[in-house]
Design a protein around this nucleic acid. Sequence first.
RNA 1: GCUGGCAUAGCUCAGUUGGCUAGAGCAGCUGAUUUGUAAUCAGCAGGCCCGGGGUUCAAAUCCUCGUGCCAGCACCA
Length: 602
Amino acid sequence: MDNIAIKFEGEIVDLQTAQQMGIEGEGIELDDSPESLEVLRHSTAHLMAQAIKSLYPEAEFYVGPVVKEGFYYDFKVDSEIGEGDLKKIEKTMIGFAKKKHEITKYDISMDEAKAKFADDHLKLAVMERIPSDTVSIYKQGEFEDLCRGPHLPNTKLIRNFKLTKLAGAYLGGDSKNEMLTRIYGIAFASKEALKNHMLMLAEAEKRDHRKIGREMALFTFREEVGAGFPIWLPAGARMRSRLEDLLFKAHRKRGYEPVRGPEMLRSDLWKTSGHYQNYGENMYFTNIDDVEFGVKPMNCVGHIKVYEHDLHSYRDLPLKYFEYGVVHRHEFTGALHGLFRVREFTQDDAHIFCTSDQIEEQIIEVVDFVDKIMTTFNFDYKMMVSTKPEKAVGDDRVWEVSTQALKNAMDTHKLPYEIDEGGGAFYGPKIDIKITDAIGREWQCGTIQLDFNLPKRFELEYTGEENNKIQPVMIHRAILGSFERFIGILTEHYAGEFPMFIAPTQVAIVPIAQTHNDYAKMIHDKLLDIGADSEIYKSNDSLNKRIRTAEKTRVPMLIVVGDEEVENSSVAIRDRRSREQSNSSLDEFLKMIQEKINEVNF
RNA sequence: GCUGGCAUAGCUCAGUUGGCUAGAGCAGCUGAUUUGUAAUCAGCAGGCCCGGGGUUCAAAUCCUCGUGCCAGCACCA
């Protein structure tokens, strides 16, 4: 197979550029490796632009980069483009690919380029952002585009692609700017890879927690209740409470004390904390007897008040307060999405008040806690250190010290992490935990935030060894993040087939005939005694129908009981996946269920 | 919040260019059937067609303002 580009000093360099510069390097072939796909997708974006230009001659183009899930191109045309037009554009693309245009490259000066694209105000906007004096132009057939590459040598290499989405996007990603049209696409070297990708997308759709949540009656939303306010139905609430109970014990084991703050606090406090100034637009306010109150968007202020209730000595630290804190945040309507983005949610929130000497061990302890939980649910995860954002309180030196403290903790324990510049909370830097689910998607859940600012603003202190007053450090942390989002993620991760220890219902019992209902009820009660929920399928339907109905609920365990089972005090277990049956004595069955529920501890 | 699309029974969806009592499957209820491992049969019931305004002899259908949902942007637990 021919090379499509080379790797030179760690950079992908296309053949056109390599020739220009007279360099050689390790060859990159057209396959489904990350390097190859980078080049392929970039050129596919150009091919799409070429097709759009031929269909809509007035089209102006902004940028067309390669992104994690393929590529996109932002552009502007006079006519409306709808989903239906994607097929037409795809066809035109295939036409151009078949013409086997060679993709060539040449350099021109910035002034020449500005003259060349004088009637394309978007390209001119792109050039405004390029500091260099010369720019490169890639040409395929009649179509030319300002681009730094890298690109394929010929359009004929583009075969397996699909345009996936059509949407609006702001110029430069800034909501103050004009809106352009964006078309997303995906391309692969092999047909199979494209097919697998489309299958993955279909699988993701099947796992959509909004769909499964409705089918399993976990939660619902209602127009008359308001956007972003979830309603937990019995099955969902059972599951959630199992999760809450497990996590409660785990916190107690690690020395956390449960506390609880009020849902709303006087605005003066939010002014002291800085939320009023920095987070106010996300908060809900109300007036009571001429005093303004803010509904809490975070739990930290409440926990600070818990800390302030008593005088503390260095001997007391670290103090760890936790709360399943219900918070309200005014999210943009367009951001709301099932349980993933809501306006009212419950965080598994905790605040650790400690000395600066204890920061490292406390962070490591939390990271360890996170690890225990995420591995229990079979999630891979990675960590990101986020630094000071634009809107922030506290002086730069404090930010530097705390950011460094987070990095040190990670470094000394050889924990890998990535940096997210400007991604911190307004009061301090943080470590975010990003988990990867069963079909490879990433989600942000837990967060560990280091805070020197709130203790200072509230003038918190403890008494040191020399009877001096010292300011404690605050660590904000959540592990699941919120029950809402985490359960949404779990639903998609397991495709609704939850493991026994959190499933809304542990066992489905199908009596063969009415005469077996009493036996079923007896098993149901015994299951309750060992903390398992079950449902008896005794409706006036055929046996086959009832088994089908039970299986469709995605319950982890299904048993069938008839004369034989009643007589022998046993159960017939049906495996949902293999449809195979096995028999067990009732006692053994109960023991097995109990073990499966209890085997998990965080 | 912005751009575009959508809103009909609990769920999934039909409903001609505006024109008769708005339909189907599943779920629900009633009855018959009592079943040994993924849909037994029959009947019944169920709709302010998202909400306000309007256009029209006539609106589920057209216009308008809301609300909610979907995709993307922006934002984020």
